[in-house]
Simulated assay, not measured.
Amino acid sequence: MANHKSALKRIRRNESVRLRNRYQHKTTRNAIKKLRTEEDKKAAEEMLPGVLSMIDKLAKRNVIHNNKASNLKSKLMIHVAQM
């Protein structure tokens, strides 16, 4: 167990950050699934910028790797373009 006040604070902070990251990651994954299952091209094109923004935010905060974010964005844009 931690012996310092700052270490105890860090443990509390890490837990809250972990929960926030988990929530944002799950929300983004659900948005990606919704976009992939969308049948209407116009609706998919409207959803795309929001989903791409969510992916960028995860990469910026190091929740996912930059390369994974780029791959996801590329595949989603190709998917929407081919609808």
Rank of each mutant, 00 (worst) to 15 (best):
N67W: 14
A44F: 09
A7Q: 09
K75F: 11
K57I: 02
K41M: 02
L8Q: 08
E39R: 07
R29K: 13
M83Q: 02
R13T: 01
G50E: 03
H65Y: 12
E39I: 00
L8G: 01
L72Y: 02
I78C: 00
E46H: 02
M1L: 05
M54P: 05
E38D: 04
Y23V: 12
M47S: 03
R10M: 13
L72W: 04
G50D: 10
V17S: 13
L19E: 13
A31N: 08
L72D: 01
N14L: 10
A69I: 10
K75P: 04
H79Q: 03
S74P: 09
S74T: 14
A59H: 07
R22S: 02
R29T: 13
E45P: 09
Q82I: 06
N62G: 02
A69Y: 00
I11N: 03
E39L: 07
E39G: 04
G50N: 09
M83V: 00
K34M: 13
V80L: 03
K9Q: 07
S16L: 12
S53K: 13
K75A: 09
M54L: 10
A81F: 00
K60A: 14
A43K: 15
M54A: 12
I11L: 13
K26A: 14
I78Q: 09
S53H: 13
H79F: 11
H65S: 15
S70Q: 14
A2C: 08
A59Q: 06
V51I: 15
N71K: 13
R61N: 15
K33T: 11
N21Q: 13
K57M: 09
N14Q: 14
T37D: 04
I55Q: 07
E46L: 11
E15D: 08
D40E: 09
D40Q: 00
A2N: 12
R20C: 05
H25Q: 14
M77H: 01
A7P: 11
S70P: 00
H79Y: 04
E38G: 10
V17H: 13
V80F: 01
Q24K: 15
Y23M: 14
K75L: 10
K33M: 05
M54Y: 05
L48R: 04
I55L: 05
L48I: 06
M83F: 10
Q24W: 03
K33L: 10
N67S: 09
E45L: 10
E38L: 05
K75Y: 03
R36N: 10
V51K: 08
N62M: 07
H25W: 06
L58G: 06
R10K: 15
E15W: 06
K41V: 08
N71D: 12
R13A: 09
M47L: 09
P49V: 02
N66K: 15
M1P: 01
N67A: 14
P49E: 05
Q82M: 07
E15F: 11
A7D: 10
R20K: 15
N30C: 07
A59S: 13
K5T: 04
H25M: 04
I55A: 01
M54S: 00
K5W: 08
L48K: 01
M77P: 00
R10Q: 11
K33W: 04
A31V: 03
M54F: 11
S74F: 15
